[in-house]
Design a protein around this nucleic acid. Structure first.
Lengths: 67, 67
DNA sequence: AAGTAAAGAGCACTACAATGCACATAGCAG
DNA sequence: CTGCTATGTGCATTGTAGTGCTCTTTACTT
């Protein structure tokens, strides 16, 4: 999992749910500037930021054995 | 996925593979102090740190739809 | 109990994530 | 082409992740 892939998944999921970055910022209580930077692939987000956003989007992080 | 759970998974997997924190630090090129802090659940690691460690441990991060 | 190896923690420093604000750019409806 | 809305970005600030060094604590072995 790299940053570009995470950014893509979050952005796509957000659009499927029909909300914009500002609404996602309010729902997650994560700064709008942070959401923008993350979706644009410009930052290396922390676990807290990632899991909070995924949670609001109805997604979860899982760890699997590499095949 | 929260920090304590990630710490537990990484620590257990590392022991299964029979390596210590110092060896994991060398294999991942991530500072020993960072590995120690992460496994002790004292930090909020970045995606780069998490994915690099999981990769060396033969694990991968996946994003799933919450059930 | 004593010795050794591994893990945890304090301190100080650097780099950068998170943040708000303001402005720029892209996309889309008319 | 013109607005309008959403997304992207530059700048400055604050907090903290990542790091090495050193010391303490824990765990295992004899």
């Amino acid at each position: 999992m790299h940053i570009a892939e995470l950014a893509r998944i979050i952005k796509e999921r957000r659009k499927v749910l029909g909300i914009n970055q500002e609404q996602l910022s309010e729902l997650t209580e994560i700064g709008l500037r942070t959401i923008k930077g993350l979706e644009a692939g410009k930052t290396n987000p922390t676990l807290h930021t990632i899991s909070t956003i995924l949670d609001v989007l109805g997604l979860t992080l899982e760890i699997k054995t590499k095949k």
